[in-house]
């Protein structure tokens, strides 16, 4: 290979990929996607098709701001968000699991509802339209880890983020431990793969599904916390911007594994950051940058499914090749 070409490639890589600022952006921007991915993951592993992530994120984001505003502490905001996640998740579970509503319709309804309700609440409670920002909202402070931050390359890379970023990584690890090391994780995976096997062994399938949906509500709510308290302290209409669905894609791409979700989210975060960089350098207009996460999702899903198809033989089912 031509050494000039190599030098060019290295130049591009070091500017866009192996670049501390970009990697920092990657870690930050991936956080809500990680949490949305865990939201999708926990219900997916329990065998539930959960498309309500978007609505649950919005509720979480709003209640985080509300909690922080009224109780003057970011912790209150987080608690309020988690509570909203449990409630919305609980209602979702109640309606679709117990009252047998069609789970996709419920998901669509929760997403529309989440959007409408948060806009309504912003106007009703804060008397603002479109967005609500206020100096009284307490955001999550950045955490500078004492010794770590002084290490040359790793330091700035791993220290100095808001608590929710670190929390998301911890939750990935905890999810792994839960799924693969605790009895309830075993039960949940069994329910997701073969509910009959679980039921005939005395496992309460319904209870597990309920728990999974409520947990997904909490994960989504935390994604909302990042969006509204973790970076800027404000709530904007529709601020989830599709991350609920990107979370589903990330879960697919990560094959339902916590580590896979984390790495896929990093990929997203990186592509997203590079996009913003390109916009900053005026190489790409902002609108195309904004499209990046969604196009990435489509491409990722395509690649993933193509590879899956190659492994499996085609089965004709209902006349539609899957």
């Amino acid at each position: 290979m031509d050494s000039a070409l190599l030098a060019q490639i290295w130049d591009v890589l070091s500017r866009y990929v192996f670049n501390v600022a970009n990697l920092q952006g990657m870690l930050r921007l991936s956080t809500p996607v990680v949490l949305a991915g865990l939201c999708a993951l926990i219900t997916d592993r329990a065998g539930i098709l959960n498309i309500a992530g978007e609505g649950m994120i919005l509720f979480g984001a709003w209640f985080a701001v509300a909690g922080s505003f009224f109780f003057h502490s970011s912790l209150a905001g987080v608690m309020a968000a988690i509570l909203s996640g449990l409630v919305v998740g609980g209602l979702f579970a109640l309606f679709s699991l117990k009252f047998r509503a069609h789970i996709i319709i419920m998901g669509i309804a929760i997403n529309i509802f989440g959007n409408a309700a948060t806009i309504f609440l912003t106007r009703a409670v804060f008397k603002q339209a479109g967005a609500f920002a206020d100096p009284r909202i307490v955001g999550l402070g950045t955490i500078n880890i004492p010794i770590l931050k002084d290490i040359p390359v790793l330091g700035p890379l791993l220290s100095g983020y808001t608590a929710i970023v670190y929390l998301s990584w911890i939750l990935v690890a905890l999810t792994f431990v839960f799924l693969y090391r605790t009895p309830w994780g075993f039960h949940l995976r069994a329910v997701g793969e073969h509910p009959e096997a679980a039921a005939t062994l005395g496992i309460n399938v319904q209870a597990i599904r309920f728990g999974a949906v409520m947990a997904s509500g909490v994960f989504a709510a935390l994604a909302g916390v990042y969006l509204s308290l973790g970076h800027l302290q404000m709530f904007t209409e529709q601020m989830a911007a599709g991350r609920g669905f990107i979370g589903m894609a990330v879960n697919t791409f990560g094959a339902g594994e916590p580590l896979g979700v984390l790495l896929s989210s990093f990929l997203f975060g990186l592509v997203d950051t590079i996009g913003w960089r390109l916009q900053g350098e005026r190489i790409m207009p902002v609108y195309f940058v904004s499209m990046v996460p969604y196009i990435t999702t489509l491409v990722a899903l395509t690649i993933y499914t193509v590879r899956q198809q190659r492994r499996r033989k085609a089965i004709v089912d209902n006349g539609v090749s899957r």
């Binding site: 009895p183 075993f186 039960h187 995976r189 069994a190 793969e193 073969h194 009959e196 096997a197 679980a198 005939t200 062994l201 005395g202 496992i203």
Partner: peptide, 17 residues
């Protein structure tokens, strides 16, 4: 009624781990 991704031992002890 076996969970495909579990090991033999995990299937046998499922629910009574």
């Amino acid at each position: 009624k076996l969970v495909p991704s579990f090991t033999v031992a995990e299937n046998i002890t499922l629910g009574a781990e």
